[in-house]
Amino acid sequence: MSGRTRAGALIVSTATLFTAPSPAADDPAVLRDLTAVIALQGQPCGQVLTATKQGDNDYIVACKDGSRYRVFVNAEGRVVVQKQ
C-alpha cells in the first residue's frame, strides 16, 4: 500500500509540476492583461492567444498575428516585453 501511495504521490506531484504553467493560458483575465501590456508597449500582437508562465511575473505569450513575446518584470520593477 505504501508503495502505491508513493507512486500516486509521485504521479500527482509530477503532473502538478508539468501542468503548473498552463493554467495561465486558460485564464482570460491574464490573457487580456498581457494583451494590454504588449499594446501599451507599442508592440504588434493583436491578441494574446496563449500564455505560458515561466516564473513569477514572467510569461511567454503567443499572439494572434503569430508573434511571440516574453513578458516579465525585471529587477528594477519595470515591465519588459521582449520579442522572441
Binding site: L34, A36, V37, L40, Q41, N57, G77
Partner: peptide
C-alpha cells in the same frame, strides 16, 4: 478592470 501587469506597465510610464 486593469490587470497586474498592465498596472505595473502603466506605473512605469
Amino acid at each position: 478592470a486593469i490587470g497586474v501587469f498592465t498596472k505595473l506597465s502603466l506605473k512605469n510610464q
